[in-house]
Nucleic acid binder design. Structure first.
Lengths: 218, 218
DNA sequence: ACTTGATTTGAACCATCGTTCAAAAGGTAC
DNA sequence: GTACCTTTTGAACGATGGTTCAAATCAAGT
């Protein structure tokens, strides 16, 4: 009777060389689940398919996760942890807020589309209920707050022009999150290329100006 | 045995005073379904709940729609028709492309969040298969093409700065579509206020400039 | 009133899906 | 090799949800 506690799955995604066998297996399941969720869509993919992806049987999943919702919640938490790390990374950057923002934008697109396989789940908080929902939403709120923090710092320093940080953050997040709906691994642009192009557009805006200032730093 | 053909539900949402009883009922169902989809989420809402919303019984739905997928497809088509109208409207506007773009942006946010009740469905093309999926995706492609058309016209006239119209369109659409995930009817901003703020941000960009040109027309 | 076709009911069917559990298999330390 | 805990299996249960359909009801037209 192991019964792994919900507080497992450490935030730093760095691999401990000596993780218990059980935890490694758990992460394997998590990754498989994420993959399936992404391919077939959240509600279209059942526990049996997730188990099948790993060549195991359904019941076995319930040895590691209490139910489907917990599995989904862990996927989302994993994905969000990556984003929170990214946000910390961006804020710790020794660079002006506009560059911090670019770092975050590019990282977000890469994370959602190339690294974290569970990203799609991140878009479906509605599927969660109760404590899990609150926990995930709290984490998401923290992430959004980090973005606002960058924007407001930029505004304070006169580098960014931000009327309503909350609104600006949602506009940005919309562009970034939406990429999971159309990004293709075999497309003609990598995630980081897309991220950089988005950063260009978000920072410069679409309006042409007389003096065409392509970039103002470097 | 009436068997309404799939080509019904006329694009112009203007009410014909003499629509057949059957068609009116069909639209009632469509609206109810959209409402339920939106509240409970697509997969969480069953046929019984949709029927319940109208005080009718399950089986009756199948007199008007072959199955759930057809119901969903019609919802999406309805929503997309509204957007296509909007795009035509914007393009027909006797104004420079940047104003056409603003018109489209504001209209899109309003349509998705206040007018068309079936908007949420619009975000879930994955749930469709076969012919329906293709039909919806084709319509969506047409809409996106309209946006690119505006952007490219703007670029040609030197009014807009667009590197990659396809990418720019996706960034914009992401911001707009994402609003349905967080917009609240009882929030402190109306859909059109949000749309206008978005248009400001998308056009001007976040980078502060020496000459702070808030608006360049009017 | 009577007939005919349109609409609605009510109940059932069937597949799928999440979940449970007792039993089998694996792995390890003594 | 044997005892003990971990992990996996295989099969089943119960609920839900989409779907079907024959029968009942409704709405006109004559």
């Amino acid at each position: 009777m192991v019964q792994i506690k919900s507080s497992d799955l450490p935030d730093p995604s760095g691999d401990r060389p000596e993780e218990s066998r059980s935890l490694r297996r758990k992460r394997e399941i998590l990754d498989a689940a994420s993959r399936v969720f992404r391919q077939r869509g959240l509600h279209a993919s059942g526990m049996r398919e997730i188990a099948g992806e790993l060549g195991m049987h359904v019941g076995n999943l319930y040895y590691y996760f209490r139910n489907k919702e917990e599995l989904l919640a862990f996927c989302q938490e994993d994905s969000l942890s990556g984003l929170l790390n990214l946000a910390r990374e961006a804020l710790a950057l020794d660079a002006p807020p506009d560059r911090q923002l670019r770092h975050l934008i590019v990282g977000h697109v890469v994370l959602l589309n190339e690294e974290t396989p569970g990203s799609l789940a991140h878009l479906e908080v509605e599927a969660l209920t109760g404590e899990w929902r609150e926990k995930i939403m709290a984490k998401r709120e923290t992430y959004e707050a980090s973005i606002r923090q960058i924007l407001e710092a930029g505004a304070r320093q006169g580098l960014l022009q931000v009327d309503d940080a909350r609104l600006a953050a949602m506009a940005i997040l919309g562009s970034l999150n939406w990429t999971v709906k159309w990004f293709r691994r075999d497309g003609d642009m990598s995630a980081s290329e897309i991220g950089n192009a988005f950063a260009d557009q978000i920072l410069s805006g679409l309006s042409a100006r007389e003096a065409n200032l392509r970039r103002q730093s470097s």
